[in-house]
Design a protein around this nucleic acid. Structure first.
Lengths: 198, 198
DNA sequence: CGCGGGTTTGATGATGCTCAAGCCCGGTGG
DNA sequence: CCACCGGGCTTGAGCATCATCAAACCCGCG
């Protein structure tokens, strides 16, 4: 199956597309491949790309004033990456994105995206729904980080994304949870000890 | 100026509307008034309303397993309230909303909203942009709560929303920040002490 | 006047951070 | 094939921040 077809099918999960729209989409997005550790966009600069992950793995993160990196999310096949405020409003990006494996991404820039919205207005709907789902997920994470301990947030994560531990190094999971690698290490030791008792 | 006109103008900040679309909007939304402390929608149940605040003040919050309330956001004139996942996907709401003052809201239910999207497709664009902006704000809050101390989060808040302290009681500001009222109280004492020294 | 919600204060404790060292293991070069 | 290197994970001791529990206080309102 051709690379672009994955994107088309992805859109079609939420909207309907006629053949000419499909054609517009195919010509608006272009495929890029990133090597492991390569940066896709970078905090502080304008983020002029939004991308659909065809395959591979990307981590999207912020670096704070003390130089500590905080993972916003991990993106794999069928996910989107970008820095919304930067892409749509041309602010400096708050986020960076880095390939964690060889990764293929279908990318678009703001001008082409606006043009595409004009030609295929159903995509407004698609991205409305996509963004709503993302918002709802981030809201839940914010609530979790205000109400649940690091241990509970960790358990929730591995429950929600089993296999994540095989995919990304532990210190980046810690970063996603908002704790230090040392804390996650201790926390897991705790859990193992308690598991054995019961 | 008529109540509905505020909503129309609000939409027109991001999209253009012809007269017939304006008419559709006017007939899709209906005005409701809530008394102080009245609940607008409630966690656990389906949230079948989305609302545009005409005037007044609403707090949107979640209650965790221990019964502690966590403020997701405060909404005043020109803001929107709702529980996205519940409204659009018919899940039980994660959030509740409560009027903190006499509040007028233009409300719509999911069926009418879908119908309105059909009749006025530009609204897809409007809500895409609105949701993107919200997402970007919540992402920043999540990062803050992973990288900044309670004191810094508090300072950021009063800097970003001056006047908030006059508007809502302090224990709800604490709740928004993800700390206890006692902690906020101490934190403010700290700040006053340090201000006087310098 | 007295009630009640909100805020403050105090004493104590838990969670997660800091700094430092050691360990494990896969990769690289001699 | 082994020695070494480096990154990531673990462990430890001490500490900071914020939570918990309890009591006092303040003040607007019935």
């Amino acid at each position: 199956m051709d690379i672009y077809q994955a994107l088309i099918e992805h859109f079609k999960k939420k909207i309907t597309l006629d053949p000419s729209s499909e054609k517009e989409i195919r010509s608006a997005y272009s495929l890029r491949t990133f090597k492991k550790k390569e940066l896709i966009f970078q905090q502080g600069q304008g983020c002029l790309v939004e991308g659909y992950i065809v395959n591979g793995l990307v981590r999207v993160f912020n670096t704070d004033q003390q130089g500590i990196e905080h993972v916003m999310y991990f993106a794999l096949r069928d996910w989107w990456i970008g820095d919304i405020a930067s892409f749509y409003r041309n602010e400096p990006a708050v986020l960076s994105a880095q390939a964690m494996d060889e990764t293929q991404i279908l990318m678009i820039d703001p001008e082409n995206k606006e043009a595409l919205f004009k030609k295929v207005p159903q995509l407004e709907r698609f991205f409305r729904i996509l963004t709503q789902n993302n918002l709802s997920v981030v809201q839940k994470r914010l609530l979790m980080s205000h109400s649940a301990s690091a241990k509970d947030r960790y358990l929730e994560l591995i429950n929600r994304s089993p296999g994540i531990e095989q995919l990304v190094p532990q210190h980046q999971i810690a970063s996603y949870l908002g704790i230090l690698p040392e804390s996650l290490s201790r926390l897991k030791k705790q859990l193992i000890k308690n598991d054995q008792k019961s």
